[in-house]
Amino acid sequence: MMEKMIFGRFMPGDSFVHKLDPRSKLLFVFAFIFIVFFANNPVTYAGLLVFALLVIFVSRIKLYFLINGLKPVIILMVFTFLLHIFFTKEGNPIFEWKFIHVYEEGLRQGIFISIRFLVLVFMTSILTLTTSPISITDGLEVLLNPFKKLKLPVHELALMMSISLRFIPTLMDETDKIMKAQMARGSDISTGPIKERVKAVVPLLVPLFVSAFKRAEDLATAMEVRGYRGGEGRTRYRQLKWDGKDTLAMILLVAMTALLITLRS
């Protein structure tokens, strides 16, 4: 299940969306989260959906792959849809069978909420699928720069985030190794009563923490030797480039907002 999950994963590529600056993508998605709430009638919701599908098309991520990978999220969506259908009792009844009564307003609300949900999940997934985690970090660091004045340690946060991202695969491997080593010694995490299973986590967690601390210590030493002493006076190797594409994306965003506001009832 987790292996199929694509929420939060990155798929390298060279589409228009892939090539956008992380800052413009972040701004776009962030703004989109608010814009979605302007939609309140069939035309505006349909517009949102069409737009999201267009973005997917341009990003060259296959729709079936996206839907397949987002299955758990989609199950949640279907559940919300059903909730609305069964519990909204406004408007004309359109379907009755035994104890199930579906009303017009329920259907309408269900569809709208589902579209809103779907569009948001699509857009955020496209962001993470087309932007490497490290680019997202870079983008966030620059976008958050103004908050440095409020004493927010932006550089440190970004560095922490990028190092965590760098070490996730390493620690995943490590977890797998230690788990297997303990299983080979007869420890069993996957079967037995809950109490036993919780106990079986200790032989996994202790070595994992010990190793993570050791790595952190080594890393700190290596960073110190390589001259790291905080963000002061540092230059940046990873440069962000804002070009025509990004401006175009921003114009699109403004245009869409304007259109939604005009068309909403």
């Binding site: 490497s132 490290i134 990028s162 190092i163 760098r166 390493t170 790595r215 080594d218 890393l219």
Partner: peptide
């Protein structure tokens, strides 16, 4: 340890 000194992405 090659893993514990690789800082960059």
């Amino acid at each position: 340890n090659p893993d514990n000194q690789f800082v960059g992405a």
